[in-house]
Amino acid sequence: MQIQKLSITAFRPIILACFLVCISLLHYLTPLHLPYLHDIFQRLYYLPIILAALWFGLRGGLICSILVSIAYAPHLLFQWGGHLTLEMEKYLEIMLYNIVGGVTGLLSQRERERTVELQKTARGLEESYQKLQNQSERIIIIEEQLRRAEKLSTLGEMAAVLAHEIRNPLGSIRGTAEILKDDYKPGDPKQEFIDIQIKETERLNRVVEDFLHMARPQPADMQLCPIQEELETIVALLSNDARGRQISLVLKPASAPVIISADGEKLRQAFLNIIINSLQATPPGGSVTITTTPYEAGSCEICFRDSGPGIDAETMDRIFEPFFTTKPDGTGLGLAITKKIIESHGGTMQVESEVGHGTIVNVILPMQNASDGGLR
């Protein structure tokens, strides 16, 4: 589009020159006994003058009007004999050429300058709108973080009470159930009920444990941590589970060593949660792929991609809410804990999904230079 505009602009002087030459030839080649044609031809000179003024502003209009005057003057002086009293209006026409060229060029130039100013104003308004939109999005994110922090604060206050009021009775219930279990032979219906009781106490205890991890920030043991090695360890642990589900679990090699400052145990917990969720969401014959990409900006991206059924928009809006789950035996705290761990390491966690096209979890973490310290 820009090249086409430049090519049209380059042809404009040629167009003006053609007009000027053609009109002048009509003047010089038309017999003098046809004055009405000469009156028409001398009016045609306004066409290139006005075009030049519109295209090139004040300078273009004046230059074109001067060239028209120079082209028209010999015809007036030599062919018409230069009778000043008889052809005064023709001399005034030359003056009018220059007045029209100057005035039209000045108006065109001012209009062009005004257009440029309006375009600058429009760009400024667009930039201001974009800044306001970015600030609005930031405010929404901050408000969401504040709401989450308020939830966590409330959970923290409840955690100590729940730990004392639930875990101790759970231990007593489980111990009593295990003692009663010994009184019944295998296959007895009552023993089956006791097994259910033990499993439910274990599940409830797991909920309390997850709740405590969510509500109470644990002290971090930050060390230099090679991401690829951590992922290899987790993949090795889950490889049997993946084979049992008939799912291909693939860890692709990183293009360069990726080392971050992290609490290895917590980071493993976060990655483990993500991969287990991916395996549980992927049907038999599907795949879960993990890739690590280091960036020059000093960060790395760990991408977990599964070929599951995807997540609908309504569920996507709530996946990080504590206690929200779509699994019958889930606690709804896994992803919330995972996100909290990632953010405590200065990173971000994003989930992209489309129904029928699988889910992608992107974790971005700041990298650590190997020269900053050794592995401990």
Score class of each variant (00 low, 15 high):
W80N: 09
G81W: 13
G81S: 13
G82Y: 14
L84E: 02
L84W: 08
T85L: 12
T85S: 13
T85K: 12
L86I: 08
L86Q: 09
E87F: 11
E87W: 10
E87N: 11
M88W: 04
M88I: 08
E89Y: 09
E89A: 06
K90Q: 12
K90T: 06
K90C: 06
Y91C: 04
Y91E: 04
Y91N: 02
Y91I: 04
Y91A: 05
L92G: 06
L92V: 05
L92N: 05
L92Y: 05
E93M: 15
E93N: 13
E93D: 10
I94T: 07
M95P: 07
M95V: 11
M95R: 08
M95G: 15
L96Q: 11
L96F: 12
L96H: 13
Y97P: 04
N98G: 10
I99H: 07
I99D: 06
I99T: 12
I99S: 09
V100P: 02
V100M: 04
V100L: 05
V100D: 01
V100R: 01
V100E: 00
V100F: 00
G101R: 05
G101Q: 07
G101D: 01
G101L: 03
G102D: 03
G102S: 11
G102H: 07
V103A: 02
V103D: 01
V103Y: 00
V103K: 00
V103W: 02
V103C: 00
T104H: 05
T104V: 13
T104P: 05
G105D: 00
L106F: 14
L106C: 09
L106H: 05
L106K: 10
L106Y: 13
L106D: 07
L107I: 02
L107N: 01
L107P: 00
L107A: 00
S108A: 12
S108M: 00
S108L: 01
S108T: 00
S108C: 02
Q109W: 05
Q109A: 05
Q109P: 01
R110K: 15
R110H: 15
R110L: 15
R110F: 14
E111Y: 14
E111C: 03
E111R: 10
E111W: 09
E111I: 06
R112C: 11
R112I: 09
R112T: 12
